[in-house]
Computed example of a mutant assay.
Amino acid sequence: MSATNAATARAVRPAELPRTRRAPLTAISGGAAQRGRRLDVVRAPLHAKSRVPFFVLCATLMIGSLVAVLVLNTTLARGSYEMSQLQGDVAQTAQDVQMLEEDLSAAETDLPDKARSLGMVPAENPTMVSVRTGKVVKGTDQ
């Protein structure tokens, strides 16, 4: 505020303001004067409701959601741990199968040599027993 404005604000007081005349008050049609009474009963204003239940609800929802996230996170971590353990088991089983297949193929290649060392000779006409009929069948007839 500048110095001149402050001086004029101090100089003008409410008592020194020019007075204006108000219009006289008149009754409006349909007002209290026609109903025959001057005062009406008015309902008391509603009291402000406490905000505590709202805050309790918000806190409960927040705590509930945090607990749900914690349970979900723990469940996912446990599932991840079990999955990694099962993947390790699968890898170990695949390695065992591969080793057994290598042993089998080595045994198949060594079988004829071991049979000859034991004095075995290949059969000229192998004969077999048919499981369906129970008859002896020559290898070439089958």
Rank of each mutant, 00 (worst) to 15 (best):
R116H: 08
D96H: 14
M83I: 15
Q92P: 00
V121T: 09
P122T: 06
E108Y: 12
G134C: 02
R43M: 06
R51D: 04
V137P: 00
Q98G: 07
V97A: 13
V52Q: 03
L70G: 10
L66I: 12
M62I: 10
L76T: 10
L86S: 12
L70V: 11
L100P: 00
A106E: 13
V136I: 11
V67Y: 05
G119L: 02
K49M: 07
V52M: 03
T93N: 10
P53M: 00
A115Y: 06
L72H: 11
V56W: 00
A77L: 08
R132F: 12
A107H: 05
D110K: 11
G88E: 07
M128I: 04
E124P: 00
A68Y: 14
S130H: 02
V129E: 03
P126N: 02
V137T: 02
D89P: 00
E82L: 14
L72N: 14
A107G: 08
C58W: 03
R78E: 12
L72G: 15
S130M: 01
S105D: 10
D103S: 13
T75A: 09
S117P: 03
V137A: 01
V121P: 01
P126L: 03
V52C: 01
R78H: 09
T127A: 02
V121M: 09
F55T: 02
Q85E: 08
S117D: 13
A48R: 14
N73S: 15
A59I: 05
R78P: 01
P112Y: 03
R78N: 15
L100E: 12
A107W: 04
L70E: 10
E101H: 13
Q85P: 00
M62S: 14
E82G: 04
P45D: 10
R132E: 12
E108P: 02
L118N: 05
T60M: 08
R132D: 13
T60F: 07
G88Y: 02
E82R: 11
L100N: 13
D96I: 11
A107P: 02
L100H: 13
V131Y: 09
N73I: 06
R78K: 12
P45G: 07
L46W: 06
R132T: 15
E108N: 06
P53C: 00
P53G: 00
E124H: 02
S50F: 00
L100V: 14
A94H: 08
M120N: 09
L76E: 09
H47S: 08
V97K: 08
K49N: 06
R51C: 01
A115N: 05
T60R: 04
K138V: 01
M83F: 14
R43L: 06
D103N: 14
P53T: 00
P112D: 03
G64A: 07
Q98H: 05
R116I: 11
S84W: 14
V56E: 04
A106N: 09
L57V: 06
L61T: 04
S84V: 08
T75D: 04
S84D: 14
P45V: 07
T60D: 04
N125G: 04
T93E: 15
K114H: 07
V52H: 01
Q98Y: 05
D96M: 13
D113R: 12
N125Q: 12
V69W: 06
S117G: 10
V121A: 15
F54M: 03
L61A: 10
I63W: 03
L86D: 14
S130A: 05
P45Q: 10
T109I: 15
A68C: 07
V56H: 01
A44S: 15
